[in-house]
Design a protein around this nucleic acid. Structure first.
Lengths: 190, 190
DNA sequence: TTTTTAATGTCAGTGACTGACATATAACAA
DNA sequence: TTGTTATATGTCAGTCACTGACATTAAAAA
């Protein structure tokens, strides 16, 4: 094979993770990351479009999985039922990634710039799911709205899951969708 | 008075708006903005922490209004009733700002970097509202969840409002909250 | 072994952003 | 009026993220 590229990406990601954890995102230069990986700054930018992106790889996998599940759901399901099913279908993916995403969250939470990128990724995920709903015949504005709500529920489920490590993610998802119904129903008090 | 600062800010904002509309965000340098405002690049960065922020002023006003209304709502209201009331209480503010926010949206939508900042502002608004709900006694995770849902409803209401200029924003808000109930209720089909 | 191709290195350059220091201008006091 | 002070701005040098152009290496295939 021609010189392996995955090898370099892996090392760059690892070096970045270490340096961000040690010195913080802002105090770390891309040249330092590249140096620790035994590479040049220029090579860093050949693998990642910008300094932040080194922490956000694999996001497209979740996005694709969620969108696919949304499109493939039985046609008779309502938008929210569709999203419920789609969320349930990506639990395995999220559970596999948990060991990686846990330390990442700490780093991201410590830097406004990284937080900004994180919410941008979340918004992109929302647009992707909304597009999938549209392909099921949902009106554009409705699709965007439903996707936003569905992702808020998923985020809440993940928050519950992070708060209590013993709970399976699937249970958290069930609970989050149940809490959505309670929140949205007009009769319910606090 | 000592040399007026508001004057410079206004001119910088106006110059930026014009240049972004003419040449796009990426093709505009901060030096150009400052030059059109009759100032220096250094002065630009004394008034705005970064190039994007010149488009995002007044956001704190909405954030403060929404948080205040959330905190001041009658104690017996449920979280979602509280947010419904809070949303209704900022319609005037949003309607007054519409002439400014409409052209801004076009510029923002044309630049990924600006879109990223916009969703970051939205997320910050969500954190602020969640904090307000917490001060009403709502549990942290619940508060974050409810705030997310509430802001998604408000966003949807604004989308409806932008889609049909003849509708009053208040009607859009009522409709958006009604649509949330329909979406969330399990019995309903698409 | 030679050729080819993908990955990397080198280097110069742009533009966002910052710190340090100097200057101007308006209000206020003498 | 004149000097003093505080705030806004100018100037300049420097760092760092990011890019284009071109040269170089190393593995794969011919």
């Amino acid at each position: 094979m021609p010189p392996n590229s995955e090898h370099a990406r892996k090392h760059l990601r690892l070096a970045a993770l270490e340096l961000f954890a040690e010195n913080g995102f802002d105090q770390t230069t891309t040249a330092q990351i590249a140096a620790r990986a035994g590479l040049t700054e220029r090579t860093f930018f050949r693998h990642f479009p910008d300094k932040r992106e080194v922490l956000f790889e694999g996001q497209e996998i979740l996005s694709a999985a969620l969108s696919d599940a949304t499109m493939r759901a039985p046609a008779e399901l309502s938008p929210m039922q569709t999203l419920h099913l789609a969320c349930a279908s990506v639990t395995q993916l999220l559970e596999d990634n948990r060991p990686f995403s846990e330390p990442r969250q700490h780093i991201i939470a410590a830097s406004p710039a990284l937080l900004e990128r994180e919410v941008a990724k979340h918004a992109a995920l929302g647009r992707s799911v909304a597009a999938a709903l549209q392909r099921r015949g949902v009106e554009p504005l409705q699709a965007t709205f439903a996707a936003q709500i569905g992702l808020a529920v998923l985020s809440h489920a993940i928050a519950l899951w992070f708060a209590d490590a013993s709970l399976p993610l699937n249970d958290c998802i069930e609970r989050a969708f149940a809490e959505l119904q309670m929140l949205a129903s007009p009769a319910k008090s606090s």
